[in-house]
Every structure is written in C-alpha cells, then in structure tokens.
C-alpha cells in the first residue's frame, strides 16, 4: 500500500488535526473523512492541498449525533492540471457550519457536490468561495438538500474570477427543498467576475417537490407521504451512486435508515 502511494501524486492533506473518531484514508486516489460522534467544536482551519497533476476523489461525511455543533473552516488549494471531485454529505443531527475556500489554479477540473438534510431545530450554514486564479480551469458546483421540521438553511456561494485569469468556466447549481411548514432557507449564489474571458453561470431554486412529481408517484400507488419520502431519498441516492465504488458501508447503512 505504501509503495503504491509513493508511486502516485497523492493528496497532501496538511494540518489534519481532528479530535474525533474520524479517519483519513489516503488510499489510491481518494480521501474519506467521516465525522459521526464525540465532540467537535471550532476546529482550526483545515488546509487541503491537491498537488499538481493529481486525480482525486475527496469524500466528506458528517453523520449522526455528536455533542456540539460542528464548525469548521477549510482552505482547499488545487494545483495545476489537477482533476478533483469533492463529495460532501451532511446527515447530522446537530447544527453545522462549514466555511470552504477553494483556490483553483490552471487547467484543472473540479466538481463539488453537496447533499444535506437538516431537521428539528437545526441551523445549517455553508459558505463557499471558489477563487479562480489561473487559466483554462473548469468547475461544476452542485448543492442540493432538504429542510424538515423547523430547520433553517443558509447557503452562500461565491465564484470569484481574478483579473489576470483566462478562459475559466464555472457552473453553480443550488437546490433547496423546504418540506415542512416551518422550515426556511436563505441562499446567496454570488458571482464576482473580473475577467471578460470567463464563462460563468449559476442557478438557484428553493421549492418543495412539485405537485407533478408527487402526483406521478401517487398514480403509481404510493400515498403522499411515501411519495415525498421517495423523492427525498432520491436526492441522496443519486449522490450515493456517484461514490458507490468506494463501498461506504457507513453511509449506506445510514441511508437505509
């Protein structure tokens, strides 16, 4: 295993000091972090460096119950010619705040996928900044989640394209489904573009599942509750399918419940 790692341009996960029962698995070309128990609070900024030319999948799971609200700042440096897929799944029972800052250099491809569920009186907050610093990089940033009960979701995402950059592309897509009367959400999908050669787009949608979706499933024999559950779990199913090759039992069992 170690030999194999040395042969690869593997991820360099710096200052990864996390006082919890998590593990960082630096296997062939992916990293998995799972937070699911014990105390987490105001962790220092975690810096992740994806070296030049690296191809990598980075999976981050926040699951189950823990004693305190989860708060973390992450700074992610993506080198030249890297190709990285980030997968974040938040199925926690406490409030969480995650601040992410990506610095993307030249000729890289980045996908960033977030799925989440918030419930009870959870307050979830994700603040992302995607800084384009080089040229010819492409990014696709997707975030989809559901809010139940009295949960509140804040999601801020900003794509920043620096003045001296060239021909970068980015697409940001945010969806939030409010599934109970008292749930609420606020999103801010922002763009700050200082290079005319950039091609940037974003979209955001906050809504409940459409009547057509629910009606369709009900005509197939499901009751309304089951139809809603199926649509909700469908969001996570799509996400799990993307990372199923990693055979994440912990996520599969969590999803099954």
């Amino acid at each position: 295993m170690m030999q194999k790692l040395k042969e690869q341009k593997k991820i360099n996960s710096e200052t990864c000091k996390i006082d919890c029962s998590s593990f960082v698995d630096l296997a062939d070309s992916y990293t998995i972090e799972i937070f699911n128990e014990t105390s987490l609070r105001n962790e220092p900024i975690k810096k992740v460096v994806i070296n030049d030319g690296t191809k990598h999948d980075y999976i981050f799971l926040l699951l189950g119950s823990y004693s305190y609200d989860f708060i973390q700042n992450r700074k992610i440096e993506i080198g030249d010619n890297a190709s990285v897929n980030f997968y974040y799944c938040f199925l926690a029972e406490k409030s969480f705040t995650l601040n992410l800052e990506y610095n993307i250099r030249s000729n890289s491809k980045v996908t960033h996928n977030i799925v989440y569920q918030t419930k009870g009186n959870q307050q979830s907050s994700v603040n992302e900044v995607f800084n384009y610093l080089g040229k010819n990089s492409e990014g696709q940033f997707i975030c989809e989640g559901v809010a139940l009960d009295e949960a509140r979701v804040n999601y801020n995402s900003t794509i920043v394209v620096d003045k001296k950059t060239l021909k970068n592309k980015a697409d940001l897509n945010m969806k939030l489904h409010l599934l109970s009367k008292s749930s609420s959400g606020a999103v801010l999908p922002a763009l700050a573009i200082k290079s005319a050669s950039a091609q940037i787009s974003h979209s955001a949608k906050i809504y409940n599942f459409t009547k057509e979706n629910v009606d369709y499933l009900m005509t197939r024999g499901l009751n309304m509750h089951s139809a809603n559950v199926l649509l909700k779990t469908g969001i996570f199913k799509v996400f799990i399918n993307k990372i199923k090759k990693y055979n994440l039992d912990v996520l599969n069992s969590f999803y099954a419940n």
């Binding site: 409010l178 609420s184 959400g185 950039a198 787009s201 974003h202 979209s203 809504y207």
Partner: peptide
C-alpha cells in the same frame, strides 16, 4: 433569496 414557507418557490439564474 430568503424564503420562509414551503408552498412557495423561487428560482434564480445568472450568466456572465
């Protein structure tokens, strides 16, 4: 965008 009930919908699109 701030929305505080679950029967409403907001969509936003932007390009640059």
């Amino acid at each position: 965008i701030k929305i505080e009930n679950n029967t409403s919908s907001v969509t936003h699109e932007a390009t640059a």
